[in-house]
Structure formats: structure tokens, C-alpha cells
Write a protein that binds this DNA or RNA. Structure first.
Lengths: 199, 199
DNA sequence: TTCCTCTCAGACAGGTCTGTCTATCGTACG
DNA sequence: CGTACGATAGACAGACCTGTCTGAGAGGAA
């Protein structure tokens, strides 16, 4: 855990990007309340006035951090789905991509869930979380429909439940390696029953 | 909630109980970081010195709050399970009891999950969360075995994943009424596949 | 009575935080 | 060359936090 230079700060990149990178690292690893503005600007190598020049408040910085997470996660899932053709395999590819995240050393659960428990209700964080969840939900519902589920809305919901539970358990149980296989098995079971195909 | 009897001992436990009740309300509804000691003692009608007479620190008060939650939740689930005989119905009774919690107006997700995202790693909160999760996991594994699952450990894990996901989704999606039925259906599907019984 | 213990109300210290402001520095551009 | 602008370092205000301490009150026990 080298405090000195965990990430090389490239002063050619804009102050805004450096702030977002620092926010990503620190907010995700340690939480929003415990990481103060001073730590962000120190890591980013940026003056405090510059931060408040790019973002009106800490909450806006948090919202930008979540927006970047949203983009990163959905594009990663989209890439995983694009690698296969069969809808059923696309669903499994999503859970596979999720499992790869669990294996990362810096994995710390869903950023939106964590931010939502720390932020006040009705703010920018809640809005960002709602948007993210709607996106994931839509993805699963579409996949359920393509896979031929009799009730795509319900199967989409169930897959989302599984996705949520997996992310939460992986954080709470600290990378328990037994989670990922159980998740994939469960997804297949839910699929089988919903598509009425038998095992 | 014991009625106050004017003995010395009851006065002592009364202050402690009032503090725990206040902690339960405020920590659960608003989070641990955002609720300060002053709000706790004001709600409990207790002096600050009395709080630090009963608990060495805020973290210890939080740990006591989580311990009371642990006891409350596990006894509620045990009562729900005791009402039926068939192991399969016991499993559904657990998810039914959980769904009843979702319907409560003050439901705000899993207290252990929330506390864990706010607390530093390696403290009393993490220990309490680990204990709680192990208890729930053991319950599901036992039920899976009683239900005749071919692989009770895996089914127990999957039911736990479902339980986690349901609690998380119910908070993030703000009591979406579609969650509970989907959870029960999913539990049945997982059971059916694991017990090899067909639908 | 006197003592002893618990309680209350609140001041206080020492630290944190966000957001604003000043004052200086470097550099691009007219 | 001169000017304008963005960035920097850091002080500052105002609010919050936890945990300690003081002083006083109430009630049971010797």
C-alpha cells in the first residue's frame, strides 16, 4: 500500500480528468464521507480553487464520479455481451464479466449502492443510482425477452436480483470464491425454468 | 420494552435501553455517520456522560445496535419458520417474512450492509456483519439440506444471494411491490432445480 | 443525618469538514 | 512587451464531530 505514488499523475491531462481519476480511486475504495476534499485535491495534484472551478460542490464531483462509473460498467457489460450470439450465452456473459470484477484486488462492491447509503435522499446521488439501476434492469429485461422467457419482465427482475445479491455478497464476504459459480448456476436455473426448457 | 420499576438496576437498564432504542431509530433511518452523538442523547433523553458511562465509544454503541438487530431479525425468521413443517415451506416462509419487512414504511435495507459501508474495515461493525451473515448462511444451508437438495451448500448460497439481492433492491428501488413475488418465484425455481423435482 | 452512586445539563478541547477568499505565479496571446 | 487568465498554495470562516470534564440534583443505604 504505497501512499507515495499509487498512480502517476500526468499533468498534461486536464485538471478535471485528474480530479475524476482521484475521486474514482478514493471514493470507491474508502467511501464518500470519509474521503475529504483535501485528500482528493492532494491526490489529483490540483488546487482547491480549481476543484470548485470545475465542480460547484462535492456532491457534483460525486455525481460526476458516478456518471463515469455508469459509463464504464455498462460499456464493459456491452462488450462482454457482444462477444457471443446466443441470448442465453449473453446472460451468462454478463455474470461472467461481473465475476471478473469480483476477482479484482480493488473490488469493493457496487459504487452506486455504497454512495446511496452515504448520501442524503433526494440528491444527485440518488438520481444517478436510479438511472444506473434502470439501465441494468432494461438490459436484463431485453435479454430475457431475447432468450424467449414466457414472462420477460419477471425473469429480468430475477436476474437483476441475482446481480445485486452477487455484488453485495462479494463485498460483504470479501471475495468468497464460491460466489461466482453459484451465481452462474442460479442464473441458468432461473433461465431454464422461465424458458420452460427443463435442465 | 420493559416497564420501568423504580429500583436502582432498572434505572440503569432503562437509560441503556433508551439509548439503544434511539440508536435503532436514528442509525437505521439516517445512517451512522450522519447521526451524531448529540442527536442520540437528545432522542433518548439522556445526558452525554451517561452514554459514555454505558458505552466506551460511539463504535460500541453501534455494535450494540447491530447486536440487537441481529437478535431481532433471526428470531423473527425463526418464528416464521416455526409456523410450518415442510422444509420447502420454511424457505418460502423466510422470504415471506422478508417481504413483510419490505412493506414496512420505515424499511431501509439491511442494517449490516449499510453500517458496513460506513464503518472502517477491521472494526466492531465488520465483525458484527460477519457474524450476522454467517448466521443467515447457516440457516439457509440447513434448510437446503432439510429440503433434500443434492448440493445443500450451493443451494444455501443461492438462497442467500437471493435474500441479499431482495433486501438491496427493495431499498434502492424504494419498496417496488414487484420484488417480493419475483423473489418467491425465484426461490421456488432454485429449489425445484436443486431438488430435481421439476416444476 | 451523611455518604454514595447514578443521573442531568452543558461547557470545553481538539479535531474534522466544506466552501470562500487572497495573493502569487506561469503562460498564451494580442 | 503587456495583459489577461487559469492555476497554485494556503489562510480563513463557520459549522460539525467525539469524548472529557465540571457542577449540581435525586434517591437509597448506613
Amino acid at each position: 500500500m504505497s501512499i507515495t505514488a499509487p498512480t502517476e499523475i500526468d499533468h498534461r491531462t486536464s485538471a478535471r480528468d485528474r480530479l475524476l481519476a482521484a475521486a474514482n480511486e478514493l471514493f470507491y475504495a474508502e467511501g464518500i464521507q470519509t474521503v475529504g476534499i483535501d485528500r482528493i485535491i492532494e491526490r489529483a495534484g490540483v488546487a482547491k480553487a480549481s476543484l470548485y472551478n470545475h465542480f460547484r460542490s462535492k456532491e457534483e464531483l460525486v455525481a460526476a464520479y458516478l456518471a463515469s462509473r455508469h459509463e464504464l460498467t455498462t460499456s464493459r457489460l456491452a462488450a462482454a455481451m457482444a462477444r457471443v450470439d446466443d441470448p442465453r450465452e449473453k446472460i451468462l456473459a454478463v455474470f461472467d464479466a461481473q465475476a471478473q470484477q469480483f476477482a479484482q484486488a480493488d473490488f469493493n462492491g457496487c459504487a452506486f449502492t455504497a454512495a446511496s447509503t452515504e448520501a442524503p435522499r433526494g440528491g444527485l446521488v440518488e438520481a444517478a443510482a436510479d438511472e444506473f439501476r434502470a439501465s441494468i434492469r432494461g438490459m436484463f429485461t431485453d435479454l430475457a425477452e431475447q432468450a424467449g422467457a414466457a414472462d420477460p419482465v419477471t425473469l429480468g427482475r430475477q436476474l437483476h436480483l441475482l446481480y445485486d445479491g452477487a455484488g453485495l455478497a462479494a463485498r460483504m464476504d470479501r471475495h468468497d470464491p464460491g460466489i461466482a459459480p453459484s451465481v452462474c448456476e442460479a442464473a441458468e436455473s432461473l433461465l431454464d425454468v422461465a424458458v420452460y426448457r427443463g435442465t
